[in-house]
Computed example of a mutant assay.
Amino acid sequence: MKKILCGAVAAIALVGAAAPAAAQTNQRHYAGVIAGIPYTSTNPGGLATIGLELGLLGGIGTRYTAQANAPASTGTIDDEVTVAFTLTGEVPQDCSFYSGNNSAARDIDFGVIGIRGGDNENVGSAFEMTGPAVANIETLTAGCNFNNEVSIQKTNGVNGLVNAAAGGYDTDEFQANIPYSVNASWTGVAYNTVTTGTPQSLAVSTSQPGATKLQGAWRSDMDININAPAITSKGLVAGQYSDVVTLKLTAL
């Protein structure tokens, strides 16, 4: 996947003409700040140069040098010479997503998922969820520097949050899973398109195991909203419900 090639071409024109010999460039300039006072020094010599060079080794100031030297002409002299240099380089593909400083930042705990447990509840409503379970995740740094695929996948698929140790229960009256939806939004561009970024989104409904979307290079913040609608047709079996939802950014 790290296979991007970036190239550029530049041209330099070198112009020369027969002329009397002239002094050749030999410049040495220093600048910096000592005790809050800025200083400059042009073409110093002797001990001054030694002191300034020691300052550079100590992390003080900066230096600019320009030197030029050319031998006397031989052969035929042209009044113009043009040299073209081909410049090439490679930028590696990369995708980034800041997801906190440790794994705890990625453990999304709904806490207690409320149910209707009062003795005065009608039997048709007992043990049903009292409301939706929701979560919001936001990162300020996400994106890829090449055409890419944004993917959201639920490990348990359409079952969503699953109670893996539910024991026995009447399937007409109870269920041991809680479906949920995921919606991610960011600013980006369509695949292989060069244009100004616009709002983008990728939605995975409660009835989908996952979804993908192709994008061109993008970088922006990203919001991820998770919503588990209240189960009101059946009661929930007691226990721990869990799933892993995976967001993946892949440079293509």
Score class of each variant (00 low, 15 high):
Lys3Glu: 14
Leu5Val: 10
Cys6Asp: 14
Ala22Glu: 14
Ala23Val: 12
Gln24Arg: 11
Asn26Lys: 11
Gln27Thr: 13
Arg28Lys: 12
Gly32Cys: 01
Pro38Gly: 10
Gly45Gln: 07
Gly46Ala: 12
Arg63Ala: 11
Ala66Tyr: 03
Asn69His: 05
Pro71Gly: 12
Asp78Arg: 03
Thr82Gly: 14
Val83Gln: 13
Thr86Ile: 09
Leu87Ile: 13
Asp94Arg: 12
Asp94Lys: 12
Ser96Pro: 00
Asn101Gly: 15
Asn101Glu: 15
Ala105Met: 07
Gly114Pro: 04
Arg116Lys: 09
Gly118Ala: 14
Glu121Asn: 11
Gly124Pro: 00
Gly124Ser: 15
Ala126Gln: 12
Met129Trp: 06
Thr130Ala: 09
Ala133Glu: 04
Val134Arg: 10
Asn136Cys: 00
Thr139Phe: 06
Thr141Met: 06
Gly157Trp: 02
Asp172Ala: 15
Glu173Gln: 12
Phe174Tyr: 15
Asn177Gln: 08
Thr187Arg: 03
Thr187Ile: 00
Asn192Ser: 13
Thr193His: 01
Thr198Asn: 03
Gln200Ile: 01
Thr206Glu: 12
Ser207Thr: 15
Gln208Val: 03
Trp218Glu: 03
Ser220His: 10
Asp221Glu: 03
Met222Arg: 03
Ala228Thr: 02
Lys234Trp: 02
Val245Tyr: 02
Lys248Gly: 03
Thr250Gln: 09
Thr250Leu: 11
